[in-house]
Design a protein around this nucleic acid. Structure first.
Length: 560
RNA sequence: GUGCCUGUAGCUCAGUGGAUAGAGCGUCUGCCUACGGAGCAGAAAGUCGGGGGUUCGAAUCCCUCCAGGCACGCCA
C-alpha cells in the first residue's frame, strides 16, 4: 500500500505528503472483500483531493502480487481486496507443510521475552482469580513463541514475610492437634491463623512422618514443610491446565545478594531518596503524627507524578515491599530480555506504578516492561456472588473448578475475555452447560476432522497426490479464515491481548462446521479425485484447528 | 475523596475512527437412508449507561454526569 502511494506520488497521480501507516483489515461484510482499507479517506485532507480519486490512484499503482485477486474501489473511498483463489487453494499444501508450526512469525526472531505470571505466595491452594492471570500469562507466552520469540515463564514469590510465618504457626497448632495435644484454635477474629482444611491434612501427614519429634520446634520448620507441600500442590494444579514455569524466583535472593541495598544506593546517588519521619509533601494529619514515628527512607515518586512519596525502608530498618519489587524488575532487565511482560491482578495495579517510577529513577529502560492487568474474577452461584472458602466447602480453588468442569473449559473461560473486563465465573453455568459451551464447539470441529480420517483409512482413501485445484468455494471460505491466524497472533502479541485467539478460535470453528456439512469426502457421489482433494483440505483444516487449540493451551481431541 | 477498570441483544461477552454493530447461550421455525446432530439453515431480539463535543465518519477519541468493581498503610 505504501509503495503504491509513493509510486502514485512519484508519477504525479497524487500530491506530495507524508505516507502514513496504513491499516488493512478484513471488513465486517464479505461483499466488501477479504481485506479492506479506508486509508484514502484519511488521506483526503493532506492530499487535498476527494477520497475516491485517491483510492483509484492507489489501486492503479499497487505492485503486482500473486496473492491478490480482485481490487475494487468503492465510494466514498474504500479499497477492497480479494485473495486470489488459486493462491488460496495452494495454501492447503503450505498449511500442511508448516504443520504444528503454522503461522510462526518472525516478529520476535532472535529476541528473548519473559512472562511473569501467577506469582502467588505458597500460603494456600491457587484460586480461580489467580488462575486467570495464569491462563492469560501462559497463553501470552504461547503466542510470543508463535511470534518467534524465545520465551521464559517465571514465577516470583516470597516466603520470608509474615504471611508465611503465620502459615508456619498455623501448621504448628494443627500438628499439635493431630498428636492430640491440648491446644486452642484461635477464633475467627484472629486473621493470622490460616483456617484451611489443607493444613489439617498437612499436619496429619507430618505427624505420621515425624511423630512427636517436632513438638518443641518453633514455626520455622513448619513453615518450610508447608511451603514445600503448598508449592507441589500449586504446581500440580497449574499443570492440570497445562501451565508450567521455567523459573521460580525467590524474593529472598534479592536480600541475600544485597541487590536491594544496591538499588537503594543507586536511587540515593540520583537524588530520589531522603530520610524523614513524614513525607516532604505531607498533609496536616500526617504532620500531627510526625512525633510518633522514627525516621524512614523515602522515595521521591512524586517526581514522576505519583500522588505521594513512598517509603522504601521503614524506621525499623526493614524494607517495605516496594524496594525488593524495584530490585526484582532491575534484575529482570539485567538478565537481558528484550521484552518483559508482567501479568498482575487489578489489586496490584497501583503497586506496579511505583515500580515503574523506581525503574525510571534508576535510569533504566522501563519501556521494555509491559503489564497486563487483569480485573477480578467474581464467583457467582445461584445468581449471587460468594467468596470462596475451602473450609466451608465453597469452591473457588482451581482444582475444584477443574473437577466440576474440565481443564479445557477452565482455560477457555478464563481466556475468552478481555483482561480489562471483570469476569463473572458462574459456577452453575460452568457445571450445567459444560457440554454446551464454546469449548466443545471448537474441539468438535477437530474431532470431526479426525473422524473423517478414521473413516477414510477404513475405506482405503488417501490424500496422496491430491490436486487442490479441485477445491470449491466453501473450502476457500474456510481457508480465508485460516489465513487470518497470522494477523491474530501478531495483534495479540503487539497489543498484549491474548484473548483475541479465543475469539478467533470460535470464528474458525464457525467457519468449519458449515463446510463439513456441505463438503463430503466419503460419499458415493464424490469422484475419487475430488475425494482426494477434499481429504487434503480436511488435513489442512485439522492442522489449523489443532494449532489454534494449542495456542490456547487446550487439547485437540480425536474423540469426544 | 483520588487513581485505574467496566457499562453493547433476555444472559455472558467480542468489537482496529469506517460501509447495514457481532458471537455463544437462551427463545422460535425448519433439517437425521450421507465421513459423529456436541451439527446445519433461518428468525425474532439493540436509545452501544445518559448528555455534550471533535471528525467527512464515533460503540471506539475528549469533557461531564450516573451506576458497578479494584486500589489508595512505615501491611505483605
Amino acid at each position: 500500500m505504501q509503495d503504491a502511494i509513493r509510486a502514485a506520488q512519484s508519477d504525479g497521480s497524487l500530491p506530495a505528503f507524508d505516507v502514513p501507516a496504513v491499516d488493512i483489515a478484513p471488513p465486517k461484510r464479505p461483499e466488501h472483500g477479504d481485506y479492506a482499507t479506508g486509508a484514502a479517506m484519511a488521506l483526503a485532507k493532506p492530499a487535498k483531493l476527494n477520497p475516491f480519486a485517491i483510492a483509484t490512484a492507489i489501486a492503479n499503482h499497487l505492485p503486482p502480487a500473486d496473492f491478490i485477486g480482485a481490487v475494487e474501489v468503492v465510494h466514498p473511498g474504500f479499497i477492497n481486496f480479494r485473495l486470489n483463489d488459486d493462491w488460496l487453494r495452494a495454501q492447503t499444501e503450505q498449511i500442511i507443510a508448516e504443520g504444528d508450526a503454522l503461522f510462526t512469525l518472525d516478529l520476535g526472531a532472535g529476541k528473548r521475552a519473559q512472562v511473569e505470571f501467577v506469582s502467588a505466595n505458597p500460603s494456600g491452594p491457587i484460586n480461580v482469580g489467580r488462575s486467570r492471570g495464569g491462563v492469560i500469562g501462559d497463553t501470552m507466552a504461547r503466542l510470543l513463541e508463535a511470534a518467534g520469540y524465545q520465551v521464559e515463564r517465571e514465577y516470583y514469590f516470597n516466603t520470608a514475610g509474615r504471611q508465611m510465618r503465620n502459615v508456619g504457626n498455623s501448621l504448628r497448632i494443627r500438628y499439635l492437634e493431630a498428636l492430640g495435644k491440648p491446644i486452642t484454635i484461635p477464633d475467627e477474629s484472629d486473621e493470622s491463623f490460616y483456617r484451611g482444611d489443607y493444613l489439617i491434612d498437612f499436619a496429619r501427614d507430618l505427624a505420621a512422618e515425624v511423630g512427636e519429634s517436632w513438638v518443641d520446634h518453633d514455626w520455622q520448620p513448619f513453615k518450610e514443610y508447608a511451603e514445600k507441600r503448598m508449592f507441589a500442590w500449586i504446581r500440580a494444579s497449574l499443570e492440570r491446565v497445562r501451565i508450567h514455569h521455567d523459573v521460580f524466583f525467590n524474593e529472598n535472593t534479592l536480600y541475600e545478594s544485597r541487590a536491594i541495598w544496591e538499588v537503594l544506593e543507586a536511587l540515593e546517588e540520583r537524588g530520589f531518596i531522603y530520610r524523614a519521619a513524614i513525607p516532604e509533601n505531607a498533609d496536616v494529619d500526617e504532620r500531627d503524627e510526625a512525633d510518633d514515628k522514627g525516621e524512614a527512607v523515602w522515595f521521591r515518586s512524586t517526581r514522576f507524578g505519583d500522588s505521594k512519596d513512598r517509603v522504601l525502608v521503614k524506621s525499623s530498618g526493614e524494607p517495605t515491599y516496594t524496594l525488593p519489587d524495584i530490585a526484582y524488575h532491575k534484575n529482570k532487565l539485567d538478565r537481558g530480555f528484550d521484552l518483559l511482560i508482567n501479568v498482575l491482578g487489578a489489586d496490584h495495579g497501583a503497586q506496579y506504578k511505583v515500580v515503574q517510577y523506581g525503574i525510571s529513577a534508576l535510569g533504566l529502560d522501563a519501556s521494555k516492561i509491559h503489564v497486563i492487568i487483569n480485573q477480578m474474577v467474581r464467583m457467582v452461584r445461584d445468581g449471587k456472588e460468594f467468596k470462596g472458602s475451602t473450609r466451608r466447602g465453597i469452591y473457588d480453588t482451581l482444582d475444584d473448578v477443574i473437577d466440576m468442569t474440565s481443564a479445557d473449559a477452565v482455560r477457555y473461560f478464563l481466556l475468552a475475555r478481555s483482561p480489562d473486563s471483570h469476569l463473572n465465573f458462574d459456577l452453575d453455568l460452568a457445571v450445567r452447560q459444560s457440554n454446551e459451551n464454546p469449548v466443545y464447539y471448537i474441539q468438535y470441529a477437530h474431532v470431526r476432522c479426525a473422524g473423517i480420517f478414521r473413516e477414510a483409512a477404513l475405506r482405503g482413501v488417501s490424500d496422496e497426490g491430491a490436486d487442490v485445484r479441485l477445491l470449491g468455494e466453501p473450502e476457500l471460505k474456510f481457508l480465508r479464515k485460516v489465513m487470518e491466524l497470522g494477523e491474530v497472533i501478531a495483534q495479540a502479541v503487539e497489543l498484549y491481548e491474548p484473548h483475541r485467539i479465543a475469539f478467533y478460535a470460535l470464528e474458525l470453528a464457525n467457519a468449519f462446521h458449515p463446510v463439513f456439512d456441505q463438503v463430503r469426502v466419503l460419499h458415493s457421489d464424490v469422484p475419487p479425485a475430488l475425494a482426494k482433494a477434499r481429504l487434503r483440505f480436511y488435513r489442512a483444516a485439522q492442522i489449523a484447528l489443532r494449532r489454534t487449540l494449542n495456542l490456547m493451551g487446550m487439547s485437540a481431541p480425536e474423540h469426544m
